[in-house]
Design a protein around this nucleic acid. Structure first.
Lengths: 194, 194
DNA sequence: GTCTATACCAGGATAGAC
DNA sequence: GTCTATCCTGGTATAGAC
């Protein structure tokens, strides 16, 4: 399987379509035919780009994690304050959610991981690790700057924050109400503030 | 469709098996044949008890919500302090999670709700409402007793708490680490404590 | 209430022509 | 790179006998 950085334009379009479907219906909820209809080619053509569904999803999650890393760098560039960075982080989730209440790709796949091929499950785990490492770093910075209370360690705060964001999207879908990750993030951040 | 309180013993066993499968694989990840094998009868016999998968899941979530209501009453009976009640609430999630990292039924179905029959999606929404109403009540009690800070309203705290618990289970599955809802709950409760 | 048998369709995947 | 045609499997569901 090719690396996601040297994908053809059509392969990219396929990944885009598949990603939307995963965010809305989950891994077991979409088919190659669904993707084919969205990008306007036939099912076997999808197989040409990604022989097996397993391949497609593994690459898709790699690409997703990569793009998230980009966002993290971006936030560091735009915001100096740890609190601003944490708020900006939540805004990424909010943006995803506001697009037809899409779930985080790895929130959906994490839930489904019991019926996922190993390759995909590994990539999902990697996504969470990348995000928790970053959040732990920022939470620590915030504590050292006296912006966040020190009665919990940075790693626990990172886990709680990411859990709350992922969970907020699940609740937001499960209920038909508007409440999204941004509101939950505001609540969380105002409770941990020093 | 019969009411879940007048189910035959076999119907109960079917629901038990289906519930485990949903918690592990999701709605689109299990089949009537999977259930049949677990309870030791054949596929058409499952259809005898629940003509359509849609029926089965709707009843299953009703029963799940009902049993949760029971747990809530139980907690009120056993714990007088709002903080103890909130901790006991998280313990219910932890118990579920500790059984082979099972997800909350409605955490899983909430994520998948885009590919769920309406009847099931409605029941999922109802589950969240019941839980948020109860949590809002307890959070308010805790605030009035001076146990929790008043810089967020009770409803927001309830949403953040439930989001964190549901999300913790998703993270716990997605990564292969041990971290579960109980740890996240501890972090959350210690940050909101007055 | 459970079974065998079966209809029907959809999903994943491949072969081979263009 | 895309297509048509096809295979195989498995999933939902029903008919009808025991």
């Amino acid at each position: 399987m090719k690396h996601f950085l040297e994908m053809s334009p059509m392969a990219e379009r396929i990944l885009d379509a598949a990603q939307g479907l995963i965010q809305q219906q989950g891994y077991n909820g979409f088919s190659y035919d669904d993707v084919a209809k969205l990008v306007g080619i036939k099912k076997p053509s999808i197989h040409h780009h990604f022989p097996k569904k397993e391949d497609l999803v593994a690459v898709l999650v790699q690409r997703y994690t990569h793009s998230f890393r980009g966002e993290l760098l971006n936030m560091e560039g735009r915001h100096a304050s740890p609190m601003d960075r944490l708020a900006a982080y939540a805004a990424v989730f909010e943006q995803t959610f506001n697009r037809d209440r899409r779930l985080c790709v790895c929130g959906m796949l994490g839930a489904e991981s019991g019926s996922l091929p190993d390759s995909a499950a590994d990539e999902v785990a990697s996504f969470f690790k990348v995000n928790l490492d970053w959040l732990t770093q920022i939470m620590g910075d915030a504590q050292n700057a006296g912006l966040i209370k020190k009665n919990c360690d940075a790693e626990s705060l990172a886990q709680a924050y990411l859990s709350a964001l992922e969970g907020a999207m699940v609740l937001g879908r499960g209920m038909r109400t508007v409440q999204g990750p941004a509101d939950i993030a505001r609540t969380f951040l105002s409770t941990v503030s020093a």
